[in-house]
């Protein structure tokens, strides 16, 4: 059961399904200080994440 859960987490990570959760975790760890901008909403984060993902050579032959 724990292995299955691990596998599921890997699949989510690989597909980017949990990208927003990981972003929030990173934000809370490094940027959650007074004076910093509030974290992006899920929709805004996702837009930026996708745009960045497709800048540059990402697919091959």
């Amino acid at each position: 059961m724990r292995k299955l859960n691990m596998f599921w987490q890997r699949v989510r990570q690989l597909s980017g399904d949990d990208a927003y959760e990981r972003y929030l975790a990173h934000y809370n760890e490094h940027h959650a200080k007074p004076g910093e901008a509030a974290p992006l909403t899920r929709a805004n984060f996702f837009k930026q994440w996708q745009d960045q993902k497709w800048t540059g050579i990402k697919r091959c032959c």
Partner: peptide, 22 residues
Amino acid sequence: GRDYVPTNRWVVFGHHFAAIAG
């Protein structure tokens, strides 16, 4: 937290393979 992110090796393997294999 965006393009530079330490990532599990099998996840990187998956990304890399998906990118090279067309």
